[in-house]
Deep mutational scan, measured.
Amino acid sequence: GTVKVQGITIKVPNPDKAYKIAKKLAKKYNLTVTRKGNTIKVE
């Protein structure tokens, strides 16, 4: 899958794990995490 952070896309082998990490970071930096299948977008 991929993770998008402010325009940066990161390929990740485990979208579930990445999503959990993204959620933690999002809370810390007051961002929104959206997930569509293997693509995770943080904005």
Rank of each mutant, 00 (worst) to 15 (best):
K41T: 15
L25W: 13
P15W: 14
A18F: 13
R35V: 06
K11S: 12
G37Y: 02
T2C: 15
I40S: 02
A22E: 00
K41M: 13
K27M: 09
D16N: 10
I40P: 03
R35C: 10
K28G: 04
N30K: 09
G37R: 04
K11N: 07
A18Q: 01
N30E: 03
Q6R: 14
K4Q: 13
A22S: 03
L25Q: 00
A26F: 13
G1F: 12
G7I: 13
Q6W: 15
I21V: 07
V3Q: 06
T32H: 07
N14K: 02
K23S: 06
L31H: 03
G7T: 08
V33M: 04
K17D: 08
Q6D: 10
T34R: 08
I40K: 02
P13A: 12
P13F: 11
K27H: 06
A26M: 07
N14T: 04
L31D: 00
V33Y: 00
K41A: 08
K17Q: 12
E43K: 10
V33E: 00
A26D: 00
V42Q: 02
N30H: 11
Q6P: 07
K28F: 13
T9M: 10
L31V: 08
T34N: 03
Y19D: 00
L31G: 01
G1W: 14
A18W: 14
Y19M: 06
N14C: 15
K23T: 09
T32N: 08
I21D: 01
V33I: 10
A22L: 15
N30P: 04
K36H: 11
T39M: 09
L31R: 01
I21G: 01
K11C: 15
T39N: 07
I21N: 02
N38I: 05
K36S: 09
Q6T: 10
K41N: 11
K27T: 05
V12Y: 05
P15T: 12
K41Y: 15
N14A: 03
T39I: 11
P15C: 15
T2N: 06
T9I: 13
P13M: 13
K28H: 08
Y19L: 06
D16Q: 08
K17S: 10
Y19R: 03
I21C: 15
D16E: 09
Y19F: 09
K23F: 08
K24G: 07
K20I: 12
N30S: 07
L31Y: 06
K24P: 00
P15A: 14
K41E: 14
E43M: 11
K23A: 06
I40W: 07
Q6K: 13
I10T: 02
K27F: 07
Y29G: 01
K4E: 14
K11F: 14
A22R: 03
A18T: 04
T2H: 09
I10C: 15
K4L: 14
N30M: 09
V5M: 10
Q6G: 15
P15E: 02
A26V: 07
T34C: 12
K28Y: 14
I21A: 06
Y19W: 13
T39S: 09
K27L: 09
V5L: 12
T34E: 04
P13D: 13
K17E: 10
A26H: 02
K28P: 01
K24D: 05
T39Q: 09
N38H: 05
V12I: 11
T39P: 01
P15D: 03
I10H: 03
N38G: 05
R35K: 07
V42A: 03
T39V: 13
K27V: 06
T2G: 05
K36R: 13
G37H: 03
V33N: 00
V42F: 12
A22K: 00
N14L: 08
T9W: 12
I40Q: 02
I21M: 08
I21E: 02
E43C: 15
I10S: 02
T32S: 10
P13G: 11
D16T: 09
G1M: 11
A26S: 07
T2P: 05
R35M: 07
G37C: 05
G1H: 07
K24H: 10
N14W: 13
T32R: 11
L31N: 02
K20G: 05
G37D: 04
K24F: 14
K4S: 12
I8W: 09
T2M: 12
N14R: 06
A18M: 09
P15G: 07
K23H: 05
K41H: 13
Y19P: 00
D16H: 09
I40E: 01
Q6Y: 15
L25M: 06
Y19T: 00
N38L: 05
I8M: 09
V42N: 05
N30G: 13
V5Q: 05
R35W: 10
I8K: 06
N38C: 14
